[in-house]
Design a protein around this nucleic acid. Structure first.
Length: 839
RNA sequence: GCGAGAGUGGCGGAACUGGCAGACGCGCUGGACUUAGGAUCCAGUGAGGAAACUCAUGGGGGUUCAAAUCCCCCCUCUCGCACCA
């Protein structure tokens, strides 16, 4: 005979259908609102169990919150623009829109199968015109505010595929598809001026207390604020000066050369004046090649080329050579660096290989006297030397004085630099939101009239790469050709599309009024429902998506459209699921598909295992065998019902009143186990941050207790009424506590118990705090920190009693015999430790 | 190189403010029920030892009556950033 198992196949569909109404959120009611948001996925078609973790955590949380009486908003949508749709289209000859919509349908079914439910009436998809219309609208708002501008910028170009490559298509300087070396091409592109928000994006990180420290640190480093000084170095025999950014102006007396980026605007001019144009050009090309090649290789070399020109060190008055160098980049600071070999490791390495002899002048030393020979750059603080008027000062103080003195001569100013770049949003791609701009020969770049939005993506487009670096949209004459919204003359549309991060930087606003045809979002609803109470997603979006969303929300706030200026109040980043030591991916062939697992074990088993696998914020290794443990647990809970149908069926189950005072010893133990489990589940989920793994283990323990109670309690076995009521009470509470994690099982049991309405409208059991501690506990007796004995004591026994018990314990007495007790430490509830000198 | 996180049985992991290391689960062992068990139920399961005990939280030091937990040094792994001037 086989034991009863939960008939999950019959049960799952039934509840999945009924839950759709349960998750329909009435946003007009904001009392107890809880906006539970999971990052919307790219509709790639197939979800694996690693993706599932995100959604299962979110779904369990939403259900726990519902049981706490919250009005939960849990919407879902699709980050549906992007490269894979185009790739699939090229490969399978299917239109990206068709491919995407097909995938969306299939993924919705996959969510259903997991028992993961959303308010689908709010579904949005970034690729649908009623959504991207408003993405375009945001672009125009940014443009009007002066935060969207056009500038020439480099793109990755594959000379053999003859196409522009996205950064993710470039692997260590080579085209991901064909392996040829990627080169750079300059194109006119659109940028968003996120740098103007750098300071606020940085400062406001401090307010995001409920974000992981890790994410805040990553954003902080990404913004990369750095305080320093810009110093002017006049070029010898020329009118111009070179402006250097430095954070170590205290070392300026040791600046014995200048290095500039090879793509610096003055580079060519300097080479010409130095009479070294030809060789210099070759060097510039060489550096450009280095930049696209392997990073480590490029970084280890400190190659330089003498321009033939010299600049004057404004502090010493000495002429110093100007070099082009591979290690200076135009993107940071001013693209010009003063070379201080004695105090900067890179400069130190540079002079060793430099084509000219360059003096190494030490200007800071630990003790005020120069070191005989530097083995490496001295980068610590110290005493100033070789720095004329500043000798003897601490370098920190000298830094201020030198800055002031140079500034008074008009040669320096204090500046703050950020590493954060403006956001390049142009993509030479088909499958994205068209940039709603028109280029007119007389008016320049003009935004499309808002009433003419959306600028629709044309459908019949050949999106195979064309070889000229332009977007496929450029081939569609009827798209390109238009009239200027400003002067009415003939003009051309911008043919690039927007980075998909633009789409995802505001979708959380759209969920509140997804079908609104008059505006992107309803400010009133948005102000009432945001910031998002809980955002859940992968750590891979720690920087870009989260930073861009913060930027857009701050911008909309500044436009007076939103009252808040941070989108996500609390952020949770779940860990990834690995298998065979690697991240799950199709290319590695280690994906675990949920469908066969759900087929074999049921959705609740897969959910329980996924939540039980480990702390949700940490990475975890998927173990096929361990899934069976979750399955056993689900069935053990089910059998509590089937083994005791007569006690739990409708009618009987209603009466679960328990008088804890009147219970026998085993009964009290079970009653207490229920209270402990209730407390632990609540704490693990709400207080300790979604620790579903330990919450489940608490419920496994309670289940084990119930089995033992049935097995061992004579009164229960004899059909005692009070024992039966206690059993019912315990099982009902177990089912309530488990419901958010194993919803199909528990909803079904709840109905079998004779209840009307969803279990998710029930409150979570409150622990009876009088019964969280046992009447007695095991007091540990230690001598010199080592456990020597144990004794059962009453829970409220006073310290004196505990000490007395310890000293009178036979084992302890034997050990202490002949020795001297130095000190006795009594920790009520835990232990007594006797520090003693033993014989 | 810089920054962050981690290292605990055969495995995944517990241990919340320093206080019985190994909860819970997987696996394994034994038993019960059974024609049978790969179902189910019960029990055992860190290592060594016959036992008393001893040793065990990456390694080494330290603080403390007491350390997985706090401090110092070192090793390994993962992630992020990376010529940041």
């Amino acid at each position: 005979m086989t034991a009863d198992t939960f008939p999950f196949r019959e049960t799952e569909r039934k509840w999945q259908e009924r839950w759709k109404a349960l998750f329909r959120c009435d946003t007009a009611k904001t009392d107890g609102k809880y906006y539970c948001l999971m990052m919307f996925p790219y509709p790639s078609g197939d979800l694996h169990v690693g993706h599932g973790r995100n959604y299962i955590i979110g779904d369990a949380l939403a259900r726990f919150k519902m049981m706490e009486g919250a009005n939960v908003l849990a919407p879902m949508g699709w980050d549906a623009f992007g490269l894979p749709a185009e790739n699939a289209a090229i490969k399978n000859d299917i239109h990206p829109a068709v491919w995407t919509e097909r995938n969306i349908e299939s993924m919705k079914l996959q969510f259903d199968r997991w028992g993961v439910v959303y308010d689908w009436s709010r579904e949005v998809a970034a690729c649908r015109p009623d959504y991207y219309r408003w993405t375009q609208w945001i672009f125009i708002r940014l443009f009007r505010a002066g935060l969207a501008y056009r500038e020439a910028a480099s793109v990755n170009w594959c000379p053999s595929c003859k196409t522009v490559l996205a950064n993710e298509q470039v692997a260590s300087g080579a085209c991901e598809r064909c392996g040829s070396v990627v080169s750079l091409r300059k194109l006119e592109q659109w940028f968003f001026g996120i740098r103007r928000y750098a300071e606020r994006l940085l400062d406001d990180l401090d307010r995001l207390e409920r974000w992981p420290e890790r994410v805040r640190t990553m954003q902080k480093n990404w913004i990369g604020r750095s305080e320093g000084v810009e110093v002017s170095f006049p070029l010898e025999g020329m009118g111009e000066t070179l402006s250097c950014f430095t954070t170590r102006v205290d070392t300026i007396y040791g600046a014995t050369f200048i290095v500039i980026a090879s793509d610096h605007p003055l580079a060519a001019e300097l080479l010409r004046r130095g009479g070294r144009e030809e060789e210099g050009g070759a060097f510039i090309r060489h550096v450009r090649e280095l930049q696209v090649q392997e990073r480590e290789k490029a970084e280890s070399t400190k190659e330089g080329f003498y321009t033939g020109c010299r600049a004057v060190n404004p502090a010493t008055g000495a002429p110093i050579p100007v070099f082009l160098a591979s290690y200076v980049v135009m993107e940071y600071g001013t693209g010009v660096v003063m070379g201080v070999p004695a105090h900067d490791q890179r400069d130190f390495e540079f002079v060793r290989e430099a084509p000219l002899e360059i003096p190494v002048v030490q200007v800071i030393s630990p003790d005020g006297s120069a070191s005989p020979r530097l083995e490496s750059a001295y980068v610590e603080d110290g005493i100033m030397i070789n720095s004329a008027p500043y000798d003897g000062l601490g370098n920190r103080e000298a830094m201020d004085r030198i800055t002031d003195d140079l500034a008074s001569r008009g040669l320096a100013r204090r500046v703050v630099h950020y590493r954060l770049r403006d956001w390049l949003i142009s993509r030479q791609r088909y499958w994205g939101a068209p940039i709603p701009m028109v280029h007119c020969s007389s008016c320049g770049s003009v935004p499309v009239n808002e009433s003419d939005l959306p600028v629709l993506l044309p459908e019949n487009v050949d999106f195979h790469p064309r070889g000229d670096g332009k977007s496929p949209l450029a081939t569609v004459a009827e798209f390109v050709k238009t009239v200027c919204p400003s002067c009415g003359g003939p003009a051309e549309r911008d043919t690039d599309t927007m980075d998909t991060f633009v789409d995802s930087s505001w979708y959380f606003l759209r969920y509140l009024s997804p079908r609104d045809e008059r505006r992107a979002f309803d400010p009133e609803l948005a102000n009432r429902w945001l910031p998002v109470d809980q955002y859940i997603g992968g750590i891979e979006h720690a920087i870009l998506h989260l930073m861009y969303s913060r930027f857009i929300v701050k911008f909309l706030h500044d436009e007076g459209l939103l009252a808040f200026d941070e989108p996500f109040g609390s952020l949770f980043t779940q860990g990834m699921i690995y298998r065979n030591g690697a991240k799950m991916s199709k290319s590695k062939g280690n994906v675990v598909s949920p469908a066969p697992l759900i087929e074999a074990y049921g959705a609740d088993t897969v959910r329980i295992y996924t939540l039980f696998i480990g702390p949700p914020e940490k990475d975890a290794e998927w173990n096929d065998r361990a899934v069976e443990g979750a399955h056993r647990f689900v069935n053990r809970v089910w059998r509590l019902y089937t083994n005791h149908r007569e006690l739990l069926d409708a009618g009987a189950a209603a009466d679960d009143r328990v008088d804890p005072e009147a219970l026998d010893e085993a009964g009290t133990a079970l009653y207490r186990a229920v209270q402990v489990a209730s407390k632990r589940v609540r704490d693990d989920v709400f207080e300790r941050g979604f620790q579903f793994n330990t919450a489940i283990s608490a419920l496994m323990e309670l289940t084990n207790e119930l089995y033992l109670y049935v097995e061992r309690n004579e009164r229960f076995r004899a059909g005692d009424g009070a024992a039966a009521r206690l059993f019912r009470n315990a099982v009902r509470r177990l089912v309530l506590l488990l419901a958010p994690m194993a919803p199909h099982l528990c909803e079904e049991l709840w109905e079998l118990f004779g209840n009307d309405g969803s279990i998710f409208r029930q409150g979570l059991p409150e622990p009876d705090s009088r019964y969280l501690k046992a009447e007695t506990y095991t007091l540990v007796l230690q001598v010199n920190g080592k456990i020597r004995s144990k004794v059962e004591v009453e829970k409220d026994a006073p310290r004196e009693t505990l000490e007395k018990l310890a000293l009178e314990d036979e084992k302890i007495k034997r050990i202490l015999a002949g020795g001297t007790v130095i000190k006795t430490i009594v920790v009520p509830g835990k232990l007594v430790n006797i520090a003693a000198k033993l014989a």
